[in-house]
Simulated assay, not measured.
Amino acid sequence: MDPFEQAWSHLSVRRDGAVAVVTLNRPQARNALNTALMEDLTAFARAIRRRSDITVVILTGGEHFFSAGADLAAQGERRKPTLLETRQAVMAGPDMCEAWEEIEAVTIAALEGYCIGGGCALAVACDFRIMGESASMRLPEVPLGINMSWRSLPRIAALVGPARAKRFVMFGEAATAATCLDWGFCDEMVTDGQALAAAQAWAAKLAALPPLPVRMTKEAIDAVTKAGHHAATFMDRDQYLLTSRTSDFQEGVTAFFEKRPPKFTGD
């Protein structure tokens, strides 16, 4: 079935000529990335991966948030899964980001409000990011006691450099749109509410270019900058399986909900 005619559970999809606009549509959960939403995003990306009639794909969220990140409240199975099953299940996020990275058309993330955790990982898998001036990006994983996974660390380092990548990931502090613009996370900062319109203006410029060399340019630059990404991150799901079972992770989550400083022990 044509992905533009398909009924998606948590996506709103429309097409304007050679430009596709994909909107995360799970507002009641602040577009948190549960299994169903990640499956929709992955399936859509794979369906249009080599579509020659699509030049640009814009990915956007709500007026006040792009995504609150992975949905930690989602329960996938009633019984306790085996470690092997869990190891397979945690590939949903990396697979989604990889699918968006592999789209041959140019991808633009239009961000309003907050973009957290897995939402940030998805945004950096796109070619460009345009942010409203009050928007921000944040990774809370390390301060909670787990590693940042979804194979996103090389993408972040490629955009902002190693020192800023370490600062952004380790501290878990929100980077404002102005900071993101200065660092290289953001390619344009606009008035709040205008991120999608700005992305559409970029899309119009891209759609007016000859499509073949545009795709060749994207493929060549990606090949140069991402050649070692898999070697650096193939193990990050196992790091997640380790860190998510530590006492420090339990302490980090508990301290977060109790609104107190955590006391980490390295265990």
Rank of each mutant, 00 (worst) to 15 (best):
A177W: 01
A105K: 10
G193N: 12
E101T: 11
S152V: 05
R79T: 14
D40A: 04
G161P: 12
T265F: 01
A43C: 07
R15E: 11
V90K: 04
C97K: 07
I146R: 11
G193L: 12
H230W: 08
H64N: 13
F185A: 09
Q200M: 13
W8H: 04
T246Q: 03
W202D: 02
S52V: 09
F168S: 07
A99H: 05
A123T: 05
R237Q: 13
A199K: 00
E219I: 05
A20R: 10
G76P: 06
Q239G: 13
S247L: 07
K80G: 12
A20S: 15
D192P: 09
Q28K: 14
F234Q: 08
P213A: 07
P213I: 04
G113A: 09
R30M: 14
H230F: 06
V160K: 08
T191A: 10
A73L: 15
H230E: 08
F249C: 12
D222Q: 14
L153C: 03
Q88M: 07
S52G: 10
M235Q: 12
E104N: 11
M148E: 08
R215N: 10
A109S: 13
G184L: 07
V169K: 05
Q200E: 15
D248C: 04
S247G: 14
D222C: 14
R151C: 06
T42G: 05
E85W: 01
P213M: 10
R51C: 10
W100L: 09
L144P: 09
K218M: 07
E258Q: 15
A175G: 02
H229L: 00
V142K: 09
C115V: 05
F65L: 06
G93F: 05
L24D: 07
R215D: 11
R51W: 03
A73Q: 14
R260S: 03
L209Y: 05
E77M: 10
I156Y: 01
S67F: 00
V19W: 04
D222R: 14
R87K: 10
M137R: 02
I156D: 04
Q75S: 12
G17D: 14
D222K: 14
A43G: 06
L153A: 11
R155S: 04
P154C: 02
H230S: 04
Q194R: 12
A29D: 13
A105C: 08
I48K: 06
S67K: 02
F128E: 11
G145Y: 04
A109G: 05
A223Q: 11
K259M: 13
I221H: 07
V214C: 03
L111R: 05
S152N: 07
G117P: 04
R79K: 13
